[in-house]
Design a protein around this nucleic acid. Structure first.
Length: 733
DNA sequence: GGATCGCTGATTTTT
DNA sequence: TCAGCGATCC
């Protein structure tokens, strides 16, 4: 009965068996976090402490929720049903449907996606006559979302929290935006958390009800919670105080999305007498990889302090290769290096799906894609545009939304002129005016405009055909079912034909996606069920288990693992990203370092870090220096190599090069060298530059040296901000 | 109302 | 480099 406990190590076992009272599990990368969470879940059920419906289990991603559900079912030996297991947002949506009227919505409220949100905000900013050029709507959206992340409805935004965006009108636009959402009976993602937290805070009877229901609370990826999620959890946990949070402060990489690591740090304060269990035995990576990752992350301050060590020393050491650090001439060579090595691995019988290339920013994947295409190596780009974010899918869903909910103005607006029905700005304005005048949805306003001649000619005919269509499709729905109806609707509305007529290269793919969407409908009983799913589960269901190399950002790689991990582009400015450092300073740098740590700890057996001396950024070449993170890796566990050798250093040091501003496009097409090289030995500078010195740099101008690290200088440039550059690129002013 | 031209600006994005 | 947007023209 309890043999599942035998498979755990002592710390894991403690985390599973400490059922009552607050518990914080600090789980390093690869220490069996998911196993602990799922086993704990099953253990609570199997020990008879609670029924499935009395456990609240929260994750961040749908994937994590699905995984937990599957693994709990496996442990129980039967499907786990009636669970409150899901993402923060899905759980809040479910709760909010019950209490919607408390915040002025009805239980059938719509959940808007990013696209709808932006359109709405733009409309409001336009109405408020805000110059969209000076104040970009995206920026305000970001501000509003951060407010929501911190649990602030418009009336709670204090002057101190306000920004000077749009001359101090941000708060009032926020209020208008919220009002508009309510009038549309809609909530955005942030609202799901915000409203539910407000309800729990202001309605003790509702809170008491959930206290009765939830005896145990489990939280995954606790380091990623934002303030409103934290408040929500704290309210719910006040009942039985049986809350277990699992997280890793070293893997907190979403602060720019509002996540606050501080939530972990204050757990003990909020829950006195909380038990803390550290999981430090790593069963994933080899000893050198762990040593490199640990050595790197040790450079961060303010950690809760964990040290990863191999769970199985023998296994982690056997045949373990050091972490490779390769210095390359330019980004092209880096691409070739990665491609060539993947080819070798493939020839040696390695599974491609066990290889990943992890980059800092999305655009970097492109270079590797091109290389892999040339070599004929199958790959998959993880992330990027997701299925439900594609235009054709969103259009089709908008059709479905109008079908389901004729009053869904945002959806109606999206499709009324797709395919073209001659509805332009002018007609749109009439529609809006009429809708406002009569206090009716756009579709009703359209009907009334056709009736009294407010719309004429081609526009009238087109819109009339559309409205007639909806009447027909709605009648068809109960008779023929949602699958048949949706596909008929897409055909009869002319939407399918629009893409059939389209001559562009993407058109066939889009038609394929539409078919896929109709297929996906089969998984749902009703149209409503499907629509709720798409708004909450915006993800691309991975199908076809083909063997492919993974290309993705470091963020997208969190939670995944691979035998071999390539980590290209470890250069100052790119990684750590200059922009992060400019915007968030030392804190930003630490988050970048955590990102590097996440990257390294994805690797089971092999990690290959690389940096290029010259990188093509957009149109031109830029020279760059190795990332400071490379210097922070413990030398004993890494192996340096690469082609950017003595020759390069001699050239970099040459005065002519420095005078040319540090870039030399004419040299970019240097003949390829096969992996030779040892680590570049570099000539010391004859006249060392001291801290505080005034210096001049060809590209960045004048500045003051604020720190010296070997041959690298941290310089606060008067105009260009602070940067790290090689001493040979500057001269004392 | 719709096509075309030219300018701008460009991380990370679990829901 | 190049996509996405707004301004401009038909």
């Amino acid at each position: 009965m309890t043999d599942y406990l035998d498979r755990l190590n002592p710390e894991q076992r403690e985390a599973v068996e400490t059922i009552d009272g607050p518990l914080l599990v600090l789980a390093g990368a690869g220490t069996g976090k998911t196993r602990v969470l799922t086993t704990r879940f099953a253990h609570i059920l199997l020990s008879g402490k609670a029924f499935p419906g009395q456990i609240l289990a929260v994750t961040f991603t749908n994937k994590a929720a699905r995984e937990m559900r599957e693994r709990v079912s496996a442990l129980l030996g039967r499907p786990a049903e009636g669970l409150w297991l899901g993402t923060f947002h899905a759980l809040c949506a479910r709760m909010l449907r019950r209490h919607a009227e408390l915040v002025g919505l009805t239980s059938s409220f719509n959940i808007l996606d990013a696209d709808d949100q932006m359109r709405l905000l733009k409309q409001i900013m336009e109405a408020e006559r805000i110059d969209a050029k000076r104040f970009v709507p995206q920026a305000l959206m970001g501000i509003i979302q951060r407010w929501k992340d911190r649990g602030m409805s418009p009336d709670r935004v204090t002057p101190a929290e306000d920004t000077d965006f749009a001359n101090g009108r941000a708060k009032s636009i926020y209020a208008a935006y919220q009002a508009r959402l309510k009038s549309l009976n809609a909530a955005d993602f942030g609202d799901l958390m915000l409203y539910m937290t407000e309800i729990l805070r202001d309605h003790p009877e509702v809170l008491a009800q959930y206290h009765r229901t939830f005896r145990y609370i489990l939280v995954d990826e606790y380091q990623d919670t934002n303030l409103v999620q934290y408040l929500w959890l704290r309210l719910l946990a006040q009942g039985h105080r049986n809350i277990c949070c699992v997280g890793d402060d070293d893997q907190s990489i979403y602060s720019w999305r509002g996540a606050e690591v501080e939530n972990i740090l204050r757990f003990e304060k909020d829950f006195p007498a909380a038990r803390i269990v550290r999981l430090e035995r790593n069963y994933r990576s080899t000893a050198p990889i762990l040593a490199a990752a640990s050595g790197l992350i040790a450079h961060n301050e303010g950690r809760l302090g964990k040290t990863l060590r191999p769970g199985d020393e023998q296994r982690a050491t056997r045949d373990a290769e050091p972490v490779s650090v390769l210095g390359l001439w330019d980004s092209d060579e880096e691409g070739r290096m990665v491609g060539d090595r993947i080819e070798v691995l493939r020839r040696d019988g390695h599974t491609l799906a066990e290889i990943a290339v992890l980059v800092r920013a999305g655009f970097q994947t492109r270079a590797f894609e091109e290389r892999l295409i040339t070599l004929g190596i199958p790959y998959r780009v993880v992330g990027g545009l997701r299925f439900y974010e594609r235009a054709e899918i969103r259009d089709a869903i908008a059709y479905a939304r109008v079908l389901h909910q004729p009053a869904d103005d945002l959806a109606f607006e999206r499709i009324v002129n797709v395919p073209r029905r001659g509805v332009g700005d002018q007609a749109m304005r009439s529609l809006h005016d009429r809708a406002r005048r009569d206090g009716v949805p756009l579709s009703i306003a359209a009907a009334s405009l056709i009736e009294d001649g407010g719309l004429r000619g081609r526009v009238r005919d087109g819109v009339r055909r559309l409205l007639d269509g909806f009447v027909r499709w709605r009648a068809m729905l109960p008779r023929e079912g949602h699958i048949e109806t949706l596909s008929t609707m897409l055909d009869e509305s002319g939407y399918t034909e629009m893409w059939q007529q389209d001559k562009s290269a993407e058109a066939p793919g889009r038609l394929e996606n539409l078919k896929e969407l109709v297929r996906a409908l089969a998984d749902f009983e009703t149209l409503a069920g499907f629509l709720d799913h798409v708004s909450l589960v915006m993800e691309n269901e991975e199908r076809a288990e083909t063997d492919r190399v993974g290309l993705m950002t470091l963020h997208a790689a969190k939670g995944l693992e691979f035998d071999t991990v390539f980590l290209p582009g470890w250069e100052e400015g790119l990684f750590p990203s200059q922009r992060t450092m400019d915007e968030s300073g030392a804190k930003g740098l630490e988050e970048e370092r955590r990102l590097a740590y996440v990257g390294l700890t994805r690797a089971r057996r092999r990690a290959i870090i690389s940096h290029a001396a010259n990188r093509r950024i957009y149109a031109n070449w830029q020279s760059s220096i190795p990332s400071r993170f490379i210097d922070e890796l413990p030398e004993a566990h890494i192996q340096r190599g690469g082609s950017a050798s003595l020759e390069r250093d001699r050239m970099l040091a040459a005065p002519a090069f420095a005078r040319a501003g540090g870039s030399f496009p004419m040299l970019a097409r240097r003949p390829r060298t096969i992996e030779a090289w040892e680590h570049p030995a570099r000539p010391a500078r004859a006249d060392p530059i001291p801290v505080g010195a005034r210096v001049f740099h060809q590209k960045f101008g004048h500045g003051t040296v604020i720190a010296v690290d070997d041959d690298k200088l941290d310089i606060a440039f008067d105009k260009a901000g602070s940067k790290r550059v090689l001493d040979r690129f500057v001269e004392q002013a």
